[in-house]
């Protein structure tokens, strides 16, 4: 049985569009025409226990709204959600005890006091035994290297340090389902990598079901085998990340290195040049033609090295976003 089942989920919001200017502001005191926006429309999917699924899409696609519906923060306008057998919007303690939510742009740590005080509070809230608490805290301190920061006031921590502590606060009770909304936003490459390694580790070690939204493709590439691509509130793709490329990528990337300097005009006729300095070129060629193009270049030009790659996932997703497919 699936841990998460979502069937025909729709969530709408009432939006008021204000025209620019002071006059429009004064008018808006008396009259505010509302319109309904479908943040999520007829979304259905299932996630099994222990899966790590990436929820991707452009800004305003409906990713965070879906996560908020799954966690029980938002009531769905229509449709059914079941997580661990519970209806999230009921907000039953038995349900909330089994989920964790890390919001990249919201603090659950108490701002004025050190993170360890929030940890102790969560220990009490989730009724964690002394032994489990100490064991898990030790594990998190070691894995995230936060031993020297948990006693420093939260507001004095850097963003990366704070995010690590946010993870600890969300995971101390060993949730069965973890929602991650932009967990690496604003982090430098080292901190982001540390967070990714950590998510991977807890997913493997504790079989935690993880749903991740991120605009950082490295998060998705490194962590998620399966992705759900959502745009304008509707699911455009649900499957293995590798299949996303197969389904949507129309192009292949060919990288050549030559013995002599080759002019751009000689290369242009084979495909669109992405990069090149005369001695090496990277070109984009359609999936149907790339084999014949590679063969032609190999026979007509002095090639010393050839590399054929799929279109980078970022480009594929960008293509899907802009509806070029």
């Amino acid at each position: 049985m699936s841990t998460i089942q979502v069937k025909n989920l729709t969530r709408t919001f009432q939006i008021f569009d204000k025209k620019p200017g002071l006059g429009a502001s004064i008018k808006s005191i008396f009259y505010r025409p509302q319109r309904t926006v479908h943040a999520v429309e007829n979304v259905s999917f299932e996630i099994k226990q222990g899966e790590l699924v990436g929820f991707i899409g452009p800004n305003g696609a409906g990713k965070t709204t879906t996560l908020k519906c799954l966690s029980g923060l938002l009531y769905p306008s229509s449709g059914n959600i079941s997580v661990l057998g519970f209806k999230p919007s009921d907000r039953k303690y038995e349900y909330l005890n089994q989920i964790g939510f890390v919001m990249g742009q919201k603090n659950q740590l108490w701002w004025d006091i050190p993170p360890q005080e929030t940890f102790l509070l969560n220990k009490a809230i989730y009724n964690i035994s002394d032994t489990d608490y100490q064991k898990r805290l030790d594990f998190f301190i070691k894995t995230l290297d936060i031993g020297d920061i948990i006693s420093v006031q939260t507001k004095k921590l850097s963003l990366g340090q704070r995010m690590k502590c946010e993870f600890v606060a969300a995971l101390l009770h060993n949730p069965k389902v973890l929602f991650l909304d932009e967990p690496t936003i604003g982090l430098d490459v080292i901190a982001a990598q540390k967070i990714r390694d950590f998510v991977k580790e807890i997913n493997q070690q504790f079989k935690t079901t993880v749903i991740l939204t991120s605009h950082n493709m490295n998060d998705v590439k490194e962590l998620c085998k399966r992705v759900i691509l959502i745009d304008q509130g509707r699911i455009k793709f649900d499957g293995l990340l590798s299949n996303l490329t197969k389904k949507f990528a129309e192009l292949k990337i060919l990288k050549f290195v030559f013995e002599n300097k080759i002019s751009k005009t000689d290369i242009k006729k084979f495909g669109e040049i992405v990069d090149g300095d005369g001695y090496s070129y990277t070109i984009k060629v359609s999936k149907e033609k790339y084999l014949s193009v590679a063969s032609k270049i190999l026979t007509t030009l002095p090639v010393t090295d050839l590399n054929i790659e799929d279109t980078p996932i970022e480009d594929v997703i960008r293509q899907v976003y802009t509806d070029k497919n």
Partner: peptide
């Protein structure tokens, strides 16, 4: 401002 969410996701 939505900060209420951090409270709502906890069993309290």
């Amino acid at each position: 401002n939505g900060n209420f969410s951090t409270l709502l996701i906890k069993p309290i």
